[in-house]
Computed example of a mutant assay.
Amino acid sequence: MNIISISQNVSRLEFALFDKIGGAPLAEGELKNWMNQEIFKSIPEKITLLCGKTLRMKNRAFSADLICIRAPYGGEDFKSPELLTDKSIKKLRKIEHVAPMHIPALIELINLLKDYFRGTPISLVFETSFFTRLPEREYVYAVDPGLAGGIPLRRFGYHGIFHERAFEFSHDKDKGRSRVISICLEPIPEICAVKNGNPLMVTGGATPLEGLPGETTCGDIDPLIILSLSESLGWGPEEINKTLSRKSGIQGLTGKKMNFAGLFSSSDSNAVLAKNLFLYKILLATGSAIAAMGGVDAIVFSGRYHDLGKEIHTYLLSKLDLPVDNCEVLPDNLLRLTAEAGLLSLLKNK
């Protein structure tokens, strides 16, 4: 079975073609600025062209038996991966206002793929589904919920696919590991405490801006900073959002575009400061995760920078009296995990 797996954020769409779960992709690629209308309209053709070109080099023909799409929002209405139906589209349209930059584009993408790959089943895999099981004490904010006008003011995490698989990965090795700290090292990193398969604490918030600082995201800041930027610089919501989400984090502290791999290898004084800040925030979040679960049995690193896990784990061991002295790494990438979850939803419907 050939499975196309798709993951997207505001600036980039990534895809891969798998013919078996657990194996390397047959082909993969990415489309930058995919929301640009000229690029958007040709997404199915570009995926077919790029996958077909790679497969021809292996003397294989391109075909797709299942399309799996990672959806960053919508978990409250989709508690588990779901095979696409007309009802699914109606449910998505009802929650467009929750993530106006993401869900309308997701609906358009689905319709494009449906028209191009006629008859091919599509499975939707939602990042936030995992976090609908957060305890109320963790997801509630101490503000009047009626202020948002229908938009839920609650905490979500944004790497639920990684966190859920990290727990399963560790628990499958040792059934006694019921308390797992999942440290997802993506450009927007996130830590989650998972006990008996359920999330108890997560650093992500109502948006991915909350929590740990990222490559371009600010992480936790005092809300009054936003008001100060508005008053002193005359900035409106769009400029403030652009600064905090695209020009902060590592980039804001170093003045350079730098990923986490570059940060950890740099000797530049500003980069060293940013690295120390990041490690310190991970330390605090790890302590919170241990407190939430009443202990820890395993720490699992995942995400595209999971290779940094060993260094981070050594740092944590030097600061905390941890009973966990081994560093576990989840080797799977997001596209493979999305394909696995999507395939399960297909099999359940057969």
Rank of each mutant, 00 (worst) to 15 (best):
K46T: 03
F15Q: 00
K20G: 13
I21K: 04
A27G: 04
S80W: 08
I4H: 01
I39C: 10
A24P: 05
L49R: 11
A71E: 14
I89N: 08
G29I: 04
D65K: 04
I67D: 01
C68R: 10
A64K: 08
I6V: 07
N33A: 11
L31R: 14
K41C: 08
T54R: 05
C68K: 09
G23S: 15
N36I: 06
M57T: 09
K20S: 15
I6T: 02
S42R: 15
L84H: 08
N9R: 09
M35G: 06
D65P: 05
E14W: 05
F40Q: 05
E30P: 07
D19T: 15
L49A: 12
R60L: 15
L17Y: 02
E76P: 10
I47Y: 09
A61I: 12
N33G: 08
W34M: 00
K41G: 11
S88C: 13
Y73I: 01
G22N: 14
Y73N: 10
F40Y: 06
E82G: 00
M57F: 07
C68E: 08
P81E: 09
I39Y: 08
D77N: 05
L83Y: 05
K53L: 08
V10R: 10
V10A: 14
T54C: 02
E76Q: 09
N59I: 14
L31W: 12
R60H: 13
K20A: 13
G75C: 04
N36L: 09
F78W: 01
L13W: 02
D65R: 06
I39E: 11
R70W: 06
F62N: 02
R12S: 15
T54E: 07
L49H: 13
I69E: 12
E14N: 12
R70D: 06
Q37G: 10
L26S: 03
K87P: 05
A24V: 12
P44M: 03
D19H: 15
I21A: 04
A27V: 05
S80Y: 12
S11R: 14
A27Y: 03
K46Y: 00
L50W: 03
T54L: 03
G74N: 10
K58T: 03
Q37R: 15
